[in-house]
Simulated scan of single mutants.
Amino acid sequence: MFPSMIAGFALSFSLILAIGAQNAFVLRQGLRREHVFPLCMTCAVSDAILIAAGVAGFGTLAQAAPWFETVMRYGGAIFLTWYALRSFQSAWRGGAMLDTDAGQRTSLRAAMLTVLAFTWLNPHVYLDTVVLIGSISAQYDDRMGFAIGAVSSSFVFFFSLGYGARVLSPIFARPRAWQILDVLIGIVMLGIAMKLVIM
């Protein structure tokens, strides 16, 4: 069981390591220390559901419903573009989102809806967690161990990202740092959106 768990952990961790829309949002909320636990838990549990679906053999959804991938791609692109524009607007205003004492705090409901959209409207999530992890898990006799390892990596990654962001808090005590972060997040979001449209 142990070798399968290590393989699942390593694969899943490598897939979610790159900074994407979901990771950038969790990082930003971690820096602001807003709703970190529920956001990290939502991301990890969502990954667990998708990984379990893939390992259980549901990776053929896109083949069974060809329209699903197209709807997810364009819906995700629209959402990511909207969020990118919001990030650029925040940067233009001079790091206004840092001012948490002036009514700028993100409500739990808004934060949860945003992270759920980043998670479930991203077709790459389905390709990585359901299709790729699901297909690779089939190569192992101990698929349960592989799945446990993959799910564990999601919990380790997201909670490390959310709570580890606090280490960077001294840097982000300055509005200029938040402006730079918002610009970078906006660029990441737009890049992913464009990739979704032209893929």
Rank of each mutant, 00 (worst) to 15 (best):
residue 5 M to R: 07
residue 145 G to Q: 02
residue 76 G to V: 05
residue 135 S to G: 02
residue 55 V to Y: 01
residue 108 L to S: 11
residue 50 L to E: 04
residue 187 I to V: 15
residue 12 S to A: 14
residue 130 V to F: 03
residue 3 P to N: 06
residue 147 A to P: 08
residue 178 W to G: 09
residue 88 F to W: 14
residue 132 L to N: 04
residue 132 L to D: 00
residue 153 S to L: 03
residue 58 F to T: 00
residue 20 G to S: 04
residue 196 L to P: 08
residue 128 D to Q: 11
residue 151 V to E: 05
residue 100 T to P: 00
residue 18 A to K: 05
residue 31 L to H: 10
residue 7 A to N: 08
residue 147 A to L: 10
residue 39 L to E: 04
residue 182 D to C: 02
residue 99 D to G: 00
residue 63 Q to C: 01
residue 173 A to D: 15
residue 8 G to N: 02
residue 13 F to P: 03
residue 99 D to C: 06
residue 194 M to C: 11
residue 39 L to S: 04
residue 172 F to L: 07
residue 74 Y to M: 04
residue 37 F to H: 12
residue 79 F to C: 02
residue 18 A to C: 03
residue 11 L to T: 10
residue 4 S to N: 10
residue 37 F to E: 09
residue 171 I to E: 06
residue 81 T to W: 07
residue 29 Q to F: 02
residue 78 I to T: 15
residue 198 I to Q: 05
residue 141 D to L: 13
residue 179 Q to S: 10
residue 1 M to E: 09
residue 70 T to M: 06
residue 195 K to A: 11
residue 68 F to D: 04
residue 19 I to W: 12
residue 162 G to C: 14
residue 22 Q to V: 03
residue 149 G to C: 09
residue 19 I to K: 06
residue 35 H to C: 00
residue 134 G to N: 02
residue 45 V to F: 14
residue 61 L to H: 02
residue 2 F to R: 08
residue 110 A to L: 11
residue 118 F to G: 06
residue 131 V to E: 01
residue 116 L to P: 08
residue 58 F to D: 00
residue 37 F to I: 14
residue 65 A to I: 15
residue 175 P to R: 15
residue 3 P to T: 09
residue 89 Q to L: 12
residue 55 V to T: 01
residue 152 S to D: 09
residue 26 V to Q: 12
residue 69 E to D: 15
residue 98 L to S: 12
residue 15 L to N: 07
residue 106 T to E: 15
residue 195 K to M: 11
residue 43 C to V: 12
residue 34 E to K: 06
residue 176 R to W: 07
